[in-house]
Design a protein around this nucleic acid. Structure first.
Lengths: 345, 345
DNA sequence: ACCATGGCTTGGAACGATCCAGAGTTCCAC
DNA sequence: GTGGAACTCTGGATCGTTCCAAGCCATGGT
């Protein structure tokens, strides 16, 4: 296996199966077997072929293999277009692990971004040209359009995100239990002695937002705490986070805030900064996503950390099975986030 | 061109050139020409073939095309492995634009990460299996190993980052003028009335660090300001940024700080937080990279913003030319960053 | 009327791998 | 010693596209 990085001679054209076969004194098919089904060969033949492979630095031509086997060993990963300022920057933790886990199982990742307004943008071309073996869908919360369409095209795919609108969907998926995340965030604050804990979340029509919100409500009610006047709903932006914080701090004077995202938490920080309140001393804040920002801003924002690395690995595992057995129908996997406690609480 | 997304019938196998040819009543080659050299066909024939293509939703099979033409229309993009906490998170601005610009010219991007300790990791396999047409190298500051090796393998590539150690390198590259960035950052502070402006930078052996540092020195000296006792060199981490800030604030009492990275700037913020100093009022801070963090932390950190989008587009342009004419030798492109002014100064 | 020209179209070969069916060996049981 | 299974290995066909050389046909000049 120890292929010398820079072979002695630099040939213009890479060696082919036939070259190896000739050098080893066997047929093409035997070389092919040596690569793909080594146990079909007699030990000494295998060794001879391996020698030839190593000597020439042979690696199968992907295009040729792909043409014959109808498998490209490429996974299409569609990422949501990122907006300036919004902290979906945490997604590169996901991408990174996904790419590495995929590489370990022999798959490469073809990254693409689609027009956010058109959930189907980008899939079609890759599918028609049989460029990828499967897709990873990363924003199922935008509705089931993508998944139903992919299904109708008989495309293979897994999703990072539960099938919100179709509970009976058959494709493998992995998601993070967001309600639980909001719950542990809230309970952490309750343990710290807070009882007036406000929620700054997203609009009602956001599935993710409502899910997270329910965790806060559940935790509050479980501990006999009231939530009236403590919730606000707004856009996922710093500006509206600040506005919401301003309003709720003036009206209800909570001692702690749970935010549906780190972006909103940053909005809160802006409000605190203006009011010359000290984060973590005068008021406690918990964010969501454990983004770079939460990790680095002093004194650190306690944040709900989605297990993105684990999610990526689970998705790769599901993909592997899906591609091995086309009829594979996995149960969805729900992962639990953990709370990273920092100075803000 | 308006291909219906979900064709009337869902065929198990995608249509091939031969299918189109039969439907249009022409030969395979004519269909191929209709796709690749439309001007070779008579107008009416072209129309007929186009009809058939549209009707069947035909798209050339990538593997077959790639096998024949020896071009995969894939670009391998090697990203440096990201470390927790460090703000190279800004790179997804780059990745995003690069992917989109590449898509516009018909190229897809195959993302991979290499072992940071081994600059060559990952390239070899993709190259041998002729999986990609070219590479984008993103961390030339780690030394010329990658580029010399790629050159010796006759691989096509462009780099985001000047060829630091080999000024005579022939490959196209794009880079950002970091010294200039530090210079405008420093001058901005001078304009704001500061004269005791400290530098918090990286160790001497960091090429990028020295480059940025030189911009600060140049600006200071140009305005007749002294730099003695105002510079410190440390690791690129929050902890060491804080330590450096602590030391320099105690010793020299500067009124403003220029940091070699936003990560270091965040370290400074930690120091300020502890000292109960208000960012932007008691002391001015300028960062580098214009990361998410700089954009969102209140009151916003003034930061040198590298034109990553422009860099990505330039690289795609260079790649296009490189792949069209193999002998293409472009001059390097040096882009100027801009300063994004925020509350911290 | 003829040949050369150029525009348009065609069938066969090739890219480099795997699938498939069969051929040659070896080995063991009867 | 023979039949047959099990183990190895092989050559031809094939995946879907583009390259290549040649063919057809109308046009125009001689």
């Amino acid at each position: 296996m120890a292929v010398p990085r820079s072979g002695g001679h630099i040939s213009a054209a890479p060696p082919t199966l036939a070259d190896v076969a000739e050098l080893a004194g066997v047929s093409r098919q035997t070389v092919s077997n040596a690569v793909n089904n080594p146990d079909l060969l007699r030990a000494d033949t295998l060794a001879r072929v391996q020698d030839a492979i190593d000597k020439l630095g042979y690696q199968p031509n992907r295009a040729a293999r792909s043409l014959r086997t109808r498998a490209s060993h490429l996974i299409g990963l569609r990422m949501p277009a990122l907006q300036e300022g919004t902290a979906n920057a945490m997604m590169d933790r996901f991408v990174h692990t996904f790419v590495e886990a995929a590489a370990e199982t022999g798959y490469h990742v073809l990254l693409f971004y689609g027009d956010p307004a058109d959930p189907l943008d980008g899939y079609d071309e890759l599918l028609r040209s049989t460029a990828v073996d499967a897709f990873v869908v990363t924003d199922t919360h935008l509705g089931g359009q993508q998944t139903t369409w992919l299904q109708s095209r008989r495309a293979r795919f897994v999703s990072f995100g539960r099938p919100w609108t179709q509970p009976d969907a058959k494709h493998p998926w992995v998601d993070v239990d967001l309600a639980y995340g909001a719950e542990i965030a809230t309970e952490h604050l309750i343990e710290r002695g807070h009882s007036k804990i406000a929620w700054i979340g997203w609009h009602k029509d956001s599935l993710l937002g409502e899910e997270r919100r329910s965790g806060w409500i559940h935790a509050m009610h479980t501990h006999g705490l009231s939530t009236t006047g403590l919730a606000s709903r707004t856009e996922d932006s710093i500006g509206s986070g600040k506005a919401a914080a301003d309003a709720i701090l003036d009206e209800t004077e909570p001692t702690a805030l749970v935010c549906a995202s780190d972006t909103l938490a940053m909005g809160v920080l802006h409000s605190l900064f203006e009011r010359r309140l000290r984060l973590g001393e005068d008021i406690a804040v918990v964010g969501f996503d454990d983004s770079q920002v939460a990790q680095t801003v002093p004194p650190g924002i306690t944040s709900v950390r989605p297990p993105l690395e684990e999610a990526a690995r689970e998705l790769v595992k599901a993909l592997e099975e899906l591609l091995a057995t086309p009829s594979y129908a996995a149960p969805g996997v729900m992962l639990k986030p953990v709370l990273t406690v920092r100075g803000s609480s």
